[in-house]
Computed example of a mutant assay.
Amino acid sequence: MKKIIIFLFASFMLSSCQSQKTVTETKNTETSKLTDQQLMDKVQKDALKYFWDYAEPNSLLGRERYHEDNIYPQNDKHVVTTGGSGFGLATVLVGVERGFIPRDEAVKRLNTMMDFLAKADRFHGAWSHWINGETGKVVPFGRKDNGGDLVETAFLTSGILMVREYFKDGNAEEKALAQKCDELWKGIEWNWYTKGGEKVLYWHWSPEYQWEMNFPLQGYNECLITYILAASSPTHAIDAETYYQGWTRNGAYLTDKSKYGLPLYVKHNYSEEYGGPLFWAHYSYIGLDPTGLSDKLIKNYFDLNKNQVLIDYQYCVENPKNWKGYGENYWGLT
């Protein structure tokens, strides 16, 4: 299962960082001669390059994107992404584990990242979607989205906790790194984002616009990890009632529908017929193993994710709208 999660994550990050043309050319030239293990190595190394070789130079966190033409503000080389940086933290650990990068160099870099995050703008413990990597100040994601982003914070925190667990029993420097991670995690006020005690988490809060974004987190989508972390917090936890009333919509997110003979189990927010885009089967599970994961409504989240992926695959094989390229060797819609 660990290998599956690492492969899914590395594959997703590779697809995010290359154009379709480049992926197609790579497949037709280099990868056609690779064994499965060589392909796995290449995908993981290429995913790591984005976060290791291409990191924002001051914070060493993951850039949102960067084009040298600088046409758009979000292409600025110093705009870092919090959620994407959480994925980057996981990728660095894979690089250490697989011997792609030296462990001591990784620890040095990770210390820089944690020190930056400790000084960066936070909003009741949550970070913004984008941060200026030079100053640590919020970079607005939208006009009113200039404060805490709880979902991006959850993706970042998932990576922070992976770093903590990976190094907590190491040498003195590694234990100190793990302690920094623990302090960052404990500073997040998850329960603040219930808007004064409502039984649901809210995505955004801004000191300027307060709750005007008004986006409650309700399943099923990529946000499950937000509730898992909020319920697990040793300092600012939500209760089970918030999870069931908010995330599961009092159980209303369940469905008895199937596609291609595969149960969906839940109503995916944007497609109750086919399930959601595959990043919904990636983001919450970068460090959270769905095998045997259950609550009072879902017996096994692995089955939910497995069926979502298989439905995506079957859809591309069937290709009912005759999209060019869809088929058994070209699928994975995100």
Results as ranks from 00 to 15, higher is better:
Phe51Trp: 07
Leu201Ala: 04
Ser206Gly: 02
Glu134Asp: 12
Trp127Asn: 02
Pro207Glu: 15
His67Val: 13
Ser59Pro: 02
Val79Trp: 13
Val79Ser: 05
Pro57Thr: 10
Asn146Lys: 06
Gln210Asn: 12
Tyr202Thr: 04
His236Arg: 03
Asp41Leu: 06
Glu318Tyr: 04
Tyr72Gly: 02
Arg122Ile: 07
Ser128Asn: 13
Thr81Met: 01
Glu105Met: 08
Tyr54Leu: 09
His204Pro: 00
Ile228Asp: 11
Phe123Leu: 05
Ile188Ala: 06
Trp190Tyr: 14
Asp295Ala: 13
Glu241Cys: 02
Gly332Val: 02
Gly142Asp: 15
Asn146Tyr: 01
Gly197Phe: 06
Tyr265Met: 08
Gly62Asp: 00
Leu60Cys: 09
Tyr274Thr: 01
Met213Ser: 13
Ile6Glu: 15
Glu272Pro: 01
Gln308Trp: 00
Ala106Met: 06
Arg103His: 13
Gly84Phe: 07
Arg164His: 12
Glu25His: 11
Thr81His: 11
Val309Met: 15
Asn322His: 15
Ile238Pro: 02
His282Cys: 13
Asp182Ile: 07
Ser158Phe: 00
Glu152Phe: 08
Gly187Met: 11
Pro216Gly: 08
Leu48Met: 07
Glu183Asn: 07
Ile4Thr: 14
Gly170Val: 05
Gly159Val: 08
Ala172Tyr: 00
Pro277Ile: 09
Val317Cys: 13
Glu64Lys: 05
Leu110Gln: 04
Lys296Gln: 14
Asn322Ala: 12
Tyr54Phe: 12
Thr91Asn: 06
Met162Phe: 08
Lys321Ala: 03
Tyr283Glu: 13
Gly147Phe: 14
Thr26Gln: 11
Met114Leu: 10
Arg103Asp: 06
Phe123Tyr: 15
Asn75Pro: 00
Tyr50Glu: 10
Ser232Asp: 13
Ala176Gly: 01
Ile238Trp: 10
Leu39Trp: 14
Thr29Gln: 11
Ala237Tyr: 01
Trp52His: 12
Ser11Cys: 09
Gly292Gln: 05
Gln38Asn: 04
Thr334Ala: 09
Met40Arg: 10
Cys223Ile: 11
Val163Pro: 01
Lys321Arg: 03
Tyr202Asp: 04
Gln74Tyr: 12
Thr31Asp: 15
Leu297Pro: 00
Pro320Arg: 11
Tyr243Thr: 02
Ala10Thr: 06
Pro277Gly: 08
Asn75Gly: 14
Ser271Met: 05
Trp331Cys: 01
Asp239Ala: 03
Gly83Tyr: 03
Leu117Gly: 02
Ser19Leu: 09
Gly159Glu: 03
Gly147Glu: 04
Thr248Gln: 04
Ile71Met: 12
Val151Pro: 00
Arg98Lys: 15
His67Ala: 12
Leu161Asn: 08
Met213Glu: 12
Gly197Asn: 07
Glu165Asp: 15
Tyr50Gln: 07
Glu152Pro: 07
Tyr227Gly: 02
Glu30Ile: 14
Pro207Met: 11
Ile5Arg: 10
Thr242Ile: 07
Tyr220Ile: 06
Ala154Asn: 02
Glu134Cys: 01
Leu297Ile: 09
Trp52Asn: 08
Glu64His: 09
Ser16Gly: 07
Ala172Ile: 13
Ile298Ser: 02
Gly276Ile: 05
Gly246Arg: 01
Trp323Met: 07
Ala231Pro: 00
Glu212Ile: 04
Asp115Gln: 09
Asp289Glu: 10
Met1Ala: 11
Phe9Cys: 04
Val79Tyr: 11
Glu208Leu: 06
Phe215Asn: 15
Asp145Cys: 14
Asn111Trp: 03
Thr255His: 12
